[in-house]
Write a protein that binds this DNA or RNA. Structure first.
Lengths: 254, 254
DNA sequence: TGTTGACCTTGACGTTGCGTAAAGGTTTAC
DNA sequence: GTAAACCTTTACGCAACGTCAAGGTCAACA
């Protein structure tokens, strides 16, 4: 079967402009042109367009698609199998996103809370993927596999950077609390600072901060054995002290 | 928790440029700027960015995303549920594509053949979806639901257009064959035309045409009762006549 | 206390993958 | 024979950023 631009376009679901553009950039040239310059596509071109659209679906740049399909080492069978892998990966990521939406719905209904970093799950992995797809080959060629693996690590650890801040804040809470405990006054500037740092730490886990909840949590630090122990093991009485400081900080009246 | 551009960017997996751009077009403005003009984002902005990325994932233009999230009627809970629907749709389409790749692999290994139109399954549905997503709302508002439904029908029927051509060719084969049968000479010009039209018809179903296969099929028209009946019911002897014409056409020697 | 290095800012031009006329030639169908 | 539906090239437009450039800010370490 032979196709003109429009026929092929309809078959494949792309515009005629797209086909002309692909011709222009040398990505998909027609089999021949007829006497009046019309582009005529044949069987090979149909199959090639299919390949191109597969790759386009994976958000690979046309430039790279061109490299891939024109490479002398291009093995159609292998490429297809790799495709399938990547499509399956994409589906996994989609599942992550769907899970994310469902979590967000639950969180919206108040059935659970979400930490900030959770809110972007399913997006970030995509970014790494995109990097791989867009530059993967070139980077690997230039710097070897090691560099790119490290780069991926770095991206993955971006959220670890947040984790580090959380840890730092947690430590700051304990340190400030220990310091403040010395003078025994929960309304002192330093005790109030401890309460403030504690709030900063909290907001990493809570999507919405409220004074009431903060005050409530402070009370829990005294009531719940596990929490009490965490603060009291270093300095008995710390849990109560922190609670008092937070209650003052939040303006909570007994 | 408060975020500067880079921190928010890392959290969400987008570039600082993207955040500045979103500020520029009024899609996501920072909560405030500090004394030196730094953008500072807060909790609300984090949540909004998440929303934006959800929509971006569905390939909705930033302009439309802006309309959606700033619309006074915007209901977060409803939007999320609709999201989930659309992501599930997207997954269905992905599954179609994966099935397509698997078929293509099988066809490549010679385990089956694929018609041209099959090769683009999973792509076309996407095109309809894209249309809906990009213009759906506006079109529906302007022309009412009917127009857009018809437009979708049209897209879906594009392949039906091919179907029509196939039917037309099939009819032409029978017509030409009936005509050619009158003079009883399978090497006559008209009988050869019938063979040629038959080939054209065939190439709609075969991804690769070969004379041998064509000749083989012609023989099958005589050997297989079902096919024989199809041609012979109108004019007994037609199946043999067509076979002979095709054998001459393809240069096949008994 | 000064200076590095990692931040931040606002322009402003570049890029990709097409969409969309404009101006004109060709083919098909009645 | 003429309209409708094709096709061609040329060329400007656009979204969503990437990528300098030129300069100000801030935390940290010597």
């Amino acid at each position: 079967m032979e196709y003109t631009v429009q026929k092929l376009g309809r078959l494949a679901g792309v515009s005629t402009r797209t086909l002309r553009y692909y011709d222009e950039i040398g990505l998909l040239k027609p089999a021949r042109t007829n006497s009046s310059g019309y582009r005529i596509y044949g069987q090979q071109e149909v199959d090639r367009l299919q390949q191109i659209l597969f790759y386009r679906e994976l958000e690979i740049s046309l430039d790279n698609i061109k490299e891939i399909v024109t490479a002398p080492s291009f093995n159609r069978a292998e490429a297809l199998i790799e495709h399938r892998e990547q499509l399956l990966d994409k589906r996994k990521q989609l599942d992550l996103l769907i899970a994310n939406v469902e979590k967000t719905i639950a969180s919206n209904e108040g059935r659970m809370t979400m930490a900030d970093k959770e809110k972007f799950e399913g997006f970030k992995q995509k970014m790494i993927d995109d990097n791989e797809k867009k530059y993967g080959k070139e980077i690997r060629e230039k710097y070897g596999d090691d560099t790119i693996n490290k780069s991926n690590e770095k991206l993955k650890n971006m959220t670890q950077e947040e984790h580090e801040e959380v840890t730092r804040l947690a430590n700051e809470v304990t340190a400030t609390l220990t310091e403040a405990f010395k003078n025994g006054n929960p309304s002192s500037a330093i005790a109030q600072k401890a309460a403030d740092v504690h709030k900063q730490w909290l907001t990493h886990y809570w999507s919405e901060y409220s004074k009431e909840a903060h005050a409530g949590l402070a009370q829990m630090y005294v009531d719940d054995e596990r929490f009490k122990e965490y603060y009291d093991k270093k300095q008995p009485g710390s849990a109560e002290f922190l609670r008092d400081a937070i209650h003052i900080y939040t303006g909570y009246k007994k």
